[in-house]
Design a protein around this nucleic acid. Sequence first.
DNA 1: GCCGTTTTCGGCCCGACTGTTTTCAGTCG
Length: 573
Amino acid sequence: MKNKIVADILYQIADLLDVKGDIFFKTRAYRMAAQSIETLDEDIEIVSKENRLRLIPGVGEALSKKIKEIVETDRLEYFEKLKKEIPRGVIDLLDIPGLGPKKISLLYRHLSITNISDLKKACDGGKLRDLEGFGEISEKNILRGIALREKTSGRVLLNVAYENGNNYIKYLKQCKKIEKISIAGSLRRMKETIGDLDILTSSDTPDEVIEYFVRYPNVNNVLLKGNTKTSVSLNNDIQVDLRVVEKKSFGAALQYFTGSKEHNVKMRSMASKKGLKLNEYGLFDKKTDKYLVGRTEKEVYNKLDLTYIEPELRENRGEIETAIKGELPNIVKHGDIKGDLHVHSRWSDGTDTLENIVNYAKKLGYEYVGIADHSQSLKIAHGLTEKRIDDKIKEIDDLNKKLEGVKVFCSTECDIKPDGALDYNNRVLKKLDFVCIGIHSSFKMNKNEATKRIVKGMENEHVDFLAHPTCRIIGRREPLQLDMEKIFDTAIETDTYLEINSFPDRLDLNDTNSKFAKERGVKFVIGTDSHNISHLPYMHFGIANARRGWLEKDDILNTISLKNLEKKFGCDL
DNA sequence: GCCGTTTTCGGCCCGACTGTTTTCAGTCG
C-alpha cells in the first residue's frame, strides 16, 4: 500500500512550489489530491494498475501521470528536480508561526537562509529589518516563534488540550456578558493532537468579553487583540484563540471555526454553487446578501441539503458526500459504553486495588470491568506467573460474590513474543474469562516479520482481542511496520476484536485505520489501558477516536450488556 | 493543476489581524 508515500510526495511538492512562488491554486490542487489519496479506501497501486486514477477527486491528467510514476518506480523525477532547486531546510521554515511561503522565499533569495539556525542568527544580527516587508518587530516575532517550536514541537496531546480548554471555559462561563460559548477547532473534532485551542462565544459587547478573556490567570502573553478576536498564550505555551460573534451568527461561526479547513472549503464551494455564500456570520444569498440562517450549525447544514455532520467527522473524508445522500453512520455515543476491558491492577504494574477500580467503575456507570494485567515474561511490569494467576482468579471470584451492579472479569494482556508465540500456554489462557494480547518489546522488526508475529498471536483459539495494534506512541515511537490489510483480514477470520486504545499518547488504532478496518468488516473494543483509576476517564478519548473512525455502537464489543458479554465469553451465568 | 446542468477557459472559500505600509500583502484558521 503506497497511498501514504504518494500523498507525502504530493504534499512536499506543494510546499516546494509554494516557496518557489507558484500560483496558489496549483499548490492547492496538489494538496487536495494528496488528501484524497491519503484518505482513499483503496490501494493506490490497484487503482493505478486499473487506470482509475483520474476518478479520484482532485486528480486530473497531469497528476495521474505523476502518481503512476511514483507507484511504479517509487520516485518522481519532477520531485527530485524540485528538491535540488530548494534545500530541505527551507521547507522546515514553514513550521515557524508567522512565516509563510512568500516571506521564506524572500529570506532564501536575499539572505540565503536555508535552515532555522541561520534564520535565528540573522534575526539576532538584525539582518531581516532591511528586507522589504520585514521590520524589527518581525525579527522579534520570528525569534519567539522559533523558541516556541523548540519548546513544544507545536502540538499537544488531546488530553492536555481537553483539560486546558475545559478549564478556560469554566472561567469564561462566569462572565455575564457571554451568552453562548463552545470549544471549536481541532479540539472539538477531537483530533489526536492539537495545535491551539479555539473558543467561540456570542455576546453583544465583544470588547468586554475580550477584556475578560485576556485576564484569565494562566495567560502569559497576549499575541493579538482585535475587535472580535484575540489570541493569547498560556503559561504552558498553549495558544488559545477567542472569537466573539452575534447570537444570530453563532451556529455559522461554530461550523466555521470547528473546521477542518478542507471540510470548510468544500462547504463554501457547495454553497457558492447553490447561489449562496457561507461565512462565519451565516449563510447568505449571494446576489442580495440577504441573511438566511446561522443561529445553529444544524440550520446551516440543512439549508445546504445536508444532514447534520458530527464534529469528529468533519475532515473531508467523504462525510459531505455521504451527508448529501443522508447516509451518515449513527456514530457511537459516549453513553453507549458499558464497561472497560483493559485495566491494569496492583497484580501487575497498576497502582490500584481491585476494590478501588470497581468503585470507580461503578461511579462511571459501568456494568463490568476487565482486569487485564501483564503476563509472566514482562518482569519489569510485575507480570503474573501461573501461580499468581490462580490467586488472582480466586480474589476476583470472591469479589464478584460480594459485588452488586458490576462484574469483574479476570483477563491478561498477554505478551506476544517476537516469534508470535504467546507468553502463556493454552492451559493458562483457558482459565481466564477472556484474553487480550499485545506487543511490548522488539518493535524494530520488518513489516513481514511483524505482521506474521501478530497474525500468529491472533490465530490462537483463546484470544479475544488485540491491544494497541500498531504499538505507536504519539511523538515518541513510530507505529510498527505492518500489513494492515492482512491484520484486518486475520481479525475477521479469527473473530479477534481490535482495540482502540484510549490512552492519549496511543489512540491506537487511529481514526483512519479504524475507518478502513470497519469497511472491511472488523469489530472493535475500546479500552483505556488504565494503570491508575485516574486513567479510567480516558475512555472519553477512545470513544472520540472511534467516532472519528465512523464506528457505530454495533461495531464495538463493550457497548453490549453484561448478560450478552458473559454469553460471548462463555462465562458461567 | 483541476473542473464544468452558469463555463473546455476562467474561475478556484472567506474574513480578521498584523506589520509594514501610504492603501495592502502576507499569514492564519
